[in-house]
Design a protein around this nucleic acid. Structure first.
Length: 622
RNA sequence: GGUCCGGUAGCUCAGUUGGAUAGAGCAUCAGCCUUCUAAGCUGAGGGUCAUUGGUUCGAAUCCAAUCCGGAUCACCA
C-alpha cells in the first residue's frame, strides 16, 4: 500500500535535504537510510528493500529502533556482527537521526538523537489533525446498522453500529470521502407479523397512548405474534395435524402472508397501517441513534429498492451469463468461482434477497460515484456477500470490485444466540441505560461527585457509560465472535474506555492547575533546549506518540477499530506510569517542565483524537 | 459432506508482510495515597501458542494433515 520513491532518498544526507521526510514516520526514514547504507557499502549486490525490517527495540535492550541483520547475512557473506558494525558506523556518520548503536546477536539496535524527539514534539504536540492524512479523493460508502423495522435494536446491532460508525470515521481520517449509509429493511413478512398481531391484540394502542417507545411497542407485537403462532400450532397438532403442516396452516401465519400480498398489491389500508407502524419505529430508532451518537448521510429503504435488480438480471439473461430453467426461474452458475448455482428470480418472476442486493449495489455506486462500498454485515452472511460480488463480476458490473464485506462475528449470550422471536435479546436501549446507571453508581461509590453540577454529572455518567459500552464492543477484532454475559456488568477498570478517560482527566487537571490550555499555541514552547537526557519514561511516551499515524493507517487498511483501542489503552497506561514516576508541575527544572507539558498535551490530544474516531468522548474532569 | 472463520495464562483478549526470553486486562497474592485525581502505580504466581509433521539462520505467525468449536451451503431475509 505504501511505497517510497527510492530515488528521492538515495542521497546519504537525505535527512537534511528533503521536505517529504517530515511526513514520513521515523521507522520509514530508518528503512530508507538502511537501504541507502546497504547500497553504498555493497554497491555490487542488489538488496531487496522489502527484506529490511525495522522494529521498535525491546525494552530490555539498549536503543530505540532495531534493524534485523539476518536477511542480508547470507547474501552479503558477512557475519552479523561485522555487518552490523559496518551499517551502524555508516548510519551514525552519514545520517543525522542517530547518536549510536549496539549489536546484540544479529540485531542492530540504533539509538535516536534526543534532538529528533524534541523537534518531533515541537512540530506536533498541539496539532489537532496529527495522525490524519489528506485526500486521495476516494469515495467510500459504509453501510451499517441496516435494521429491520419489526423490533427495537439489540445488543448485537450495537456491535454493527459502533463498527460502522468508527470505520467511517477512520476512513475519513486517512483522507477518504465517506458516505455513511443505512439500508432499512422496512418491508416483508416480519413487519406484517407485527402488524397482524397489533390488529388482533392492541386495541388501537399507540406509542403516544402507552408512553412507550415506538420500536419497542412494535417489537412487543412481533413477540406476541410468535406466541400466538406457537399456540395455534400446538392446537392444530393436538387435533392430529403433523407439525410441519400445522406451521403452514396456522391461521395467524396465513393472515400475515395474505397481508404481505396485499402490501405488494398496494392495498391502501395495509399500506397506511404499515406507514403508521414504521413511523413509530423510525421515531424510536431516531432516539436510539441519537443516544448512540451515530448518524447517516444517506438512508435507503427496501420498499424502494426491493424491485431493483430485475433489470440487471434481464440484461444478464440477454448476454447469456445467466440461464432460465423450464419453470421460468432464473439462475447463475458460479461453480467456476468455487461457489454454487444460485437462484436470482423465482418462477413467478418475483425477486429474492440477492436480486435486490444486486440492484442496490449498482444504485449506491451510481448515486455517489463510489470507489468502494463497504458493507458492515455479520459473518453469517459471508456466503451471501461472496455470491453477490461474484455475480456482479460475472455480469461485468463496474461496482463489483469495490464491494468490501466488513464481516464481524456475532454477539452471543452464554446460552447461545439471541432470538428476538423468543424475547431473549439484550435490548440496546436498556443496555445504554444500565451502563449509565453503572457509571453513576461507581462514581458515587468512589466519592467523585464533588465540584460537579447536576447537569455536569448527568453528562459525565453518559460519557463514562457510553464510552465503556462502545469500547467493550470495539476492543475485540471484528471478525471474532464475542460472548456477552448480561449477569456480569461491563467493567470500568483495566482495558476499558474509563481507564483512558481517567488518564485524560488527570492530564487536563494538571494543565488546568498550570494555567495551560488543552491546545496551547506553539509560541511558549518554541525554544526547547534540553541540558539533560530524555529519561526512559519520557522516551517511551514520545516513541508511542510517534507511532500514532501508522496505527490509524493500519486501522483503516484493516477496517479494524480495535487497533485504536489497543493503542490508546497502551498510551494511557504509559502516561499513568510516567505520572507515577515523574512530577510535571514540580519538574527538576524549567526545561523538563516544558518538555513534560508538551508530552502530556500531545498525549491528551492523541487520546482524544483516537477515541473520537471511535465515537468515545473524554471528560476533562472525572 | 463442500466452503469459510476461529482455537494463545483460570477467564476475556493483543501479538501487522516470519525476528530477541510469547504480552495486556480481569481474577489471586504482596506492596504504594502529608507531594500534579489510588477509576491509578509497582511487583509475584500463572503457557505443550489445539495436535503432529514440514519449510529455514529463526515459526504463535507460512505449508500439509488431524482434532475441537462456529457459520454457511433456501424459490427466507
Amino acid at each position: 500500500m505504501r511505497h517510497f520513491d527510492h530515488h528521492l532518498y538515495s542521497n546519504p544526507i537525505f535527512a537534511q535535504s528533503s521536505i517529504n521526510i517530515l511526513t514520513m514516520t521515523l521507522a520509514a526514514q530508518i528503512k530508507c537510510a538502511t537501504e541507502d547504507a546497504l547500497k553504498h557499502l555493497f554497491p555490487d549486490t542488489d538488496i531487496n528493500p522489502a527484506s529490511i525490517t525495522i522494529n521498535l527495540t525491546k525494552p530490555e535492550f539498549n536503543g530505540d529502533y532495531t534493524i534485523v541483520l539476518f536477511p542480508f547475512v547470507k547474501q552479503l557473506r558477512q557475519k552479523p556482527d561485522v555487518l552490523g558494525k559496518m551499517i551502524g558506523d555508516y548510519l551514525v556518520e552519514k545520517c543525522s537521526l542517530f547518536t549510536g548503536y549496539d549489536i546484540v546477536s544479529g540485531f542492530l539496535n540504533m539509538t535516536i538523537k534526543d534532538g529528533v524527539w524534541l523537534s518531533f514534539l515541537q512540530n506536533h504536540f498541539n496539532d489537532v489533525h496529527y495522525g490524519e492524512k489528506s485526500g486521495h479523493d476516494r469515495r467510500v460508502m459504509v453501510e451499517y446498522s441496516s435494521p429491520n423495522t419489526n423490533k427495537p435494536l439489540h445488543f448485537g446491532h450495537l456491535r454493527n453500529i459502533f463498527l460502522g460508525y468508527a470505520v467511517g470515521n477512520i476512513l475519513h481520517a486517512v483522507g477518504e470521502q465517506v458516505v455513511k449509509a443505512n439500508l432499512i429493511n422496512d418491508r416483508g413478512i416480519h413487519i406484517c407479523k407485527s402488524m397482524i398481531a397489533w390488529q388482533r391484540y392492541a386495541n388501537g394502542d399507540t406509542p403516544e397512548r402507552t408512553g412507550m417507545k415506538g420500536d419497542h411497542l412494535v417489537g412487543d407485537y412481533y413477540v406476541k405474534f410468535n406466541d400466538a403462532y406457537k399456540a395455534e400450532i400446538a392446537e392444530l397438532v393436538a387435533k392430529g395435524m403433523d407439525e410441519a403442516a400445522a406451521e403452514k396452516e396456522a391461521p395467524i401465519m396465513k393472515e400475515a402472508q395474505e397481508m404481505l400480498r396485499q402490501w405488494e398489491a398496494g392495498d391502501k389500508e395495509v399500506r397506511s397501517l404499515w406507514e403508521m407502524m414504521n413511523g413509530w419505529v423510525y421515531k424510536g430508532f431516531e432516539v436510539s441513534y441519537k443516544n448512540l451518537g451515530v448518524d447517516f448521510e444517506k438512508m435507503y429503504y427496501e420498499s424502494d429498492t426491493y424491485l431493483l435488480g430485475k433489470a440487471i438480471v434481464e440484461e444478464g439473461l440477454q448476454k447469456g451469463v445467466l440461464y432460465k430453467k423450464e419453470d421460468g426461474s432464473v439462475w447463475v452458475d458460479l461453480t467456476e468461482e468455487g461457489l454454487d448455482h444460485k437462484l436470482l428470480l423465482r418462477g413467478d418472476g418475483t425477486s429474492v434477497y440477492i436480486t435486490q442486493d444486486l440492484g442496490t449495489a449498482k444504485l449506491k455506486f451510481n448515486d455517489f460515484k463510489l470507489d468502494q462500498s463497504v458493507y458492515v454485515i455479520a459473518d453469517e452472511q459471508n456466503y451471501h456477500m461472496q455470491v453477490l460480488k461474484a455475480i456482479l463480476k460475472k455480469l461485468g458490473e463496474p461496482c463489483a470490485d469495490g464491494i468490501y464485506h466488513l464481516s464481524y462475528g456475532m454477539v452471543e449470550l452464554p446460552t447461545g444466540r439471541m432470538k428476538s422471536r423468543e424475547g431473549t435479546v439484550v435490548d440496546a436501549d436498556d443496555m445504554m441505560e444500565e451502563m449509565i446507571n453503572l457509571s453513576r453508581e461507581q462514581t458515587e461509590a468512589a466519592g467523585k461527585t464533588e465540584g460537579f453540577s447536576q447537569e455536569e454529572l448527568t453528562k459525565l455518567y453518559n460519557t463514562i457509560g457510553m464510552g465503556a459500552l462502545k469500547f467493550y464492543l470495539l476492543r475485540v477484532d471484528p471478525k471474532k465472535k464475542m460472548i456477552f454475559d448480561p449477569k456480569e456488568s461491563i467493567d470500568l477498570h483495566g482495558f476499558t474506555a474509563t481507564f483512558i478517560q481517567y488518564a485524560h482527566a488527570r492530564i487536563c487537571s494538571i494543565l488546568r492547575k498550570e494555567g495551560v490550555p488543552l491546545l496551547p499555541d506553539s509560541t511558549k514552547f518554541q525554544s526547547l533546549h534540553l541540558a539533560d537526557e530524555i529519561l526512559p519514561a519520557e522516551k517511551k511516551l514520545v516513541v508511542m506518540l510517534e507511532q500514532y499515524p501508522v496505527i490509524v493507517e493500519n486501522a483503516a487498511a484493516e477496517f479494524n477499530p480495535s487497533e485504536l483501542c489497543n493503542y490508546a489503552f497502551q498510551l494511557a497506561q504509559q502516561f499513568n506510569s510516567f505520572y507515577a514516576e515523574h512530577s510535571i508541575a514540580h519538574a527538576e527544572n524549567e526545561e523538563k517542565k516544558q518538555l513534560r507539558l508538551m508530552l502530556i498535551i500531545m498525549t491528551a490530544q492523541v487520546l482524544r483524537h483516537s477515541m473520537n474516531l471511535l465515537g468515545i468522548r473524554l471528560p476533562e474532569k472525572m
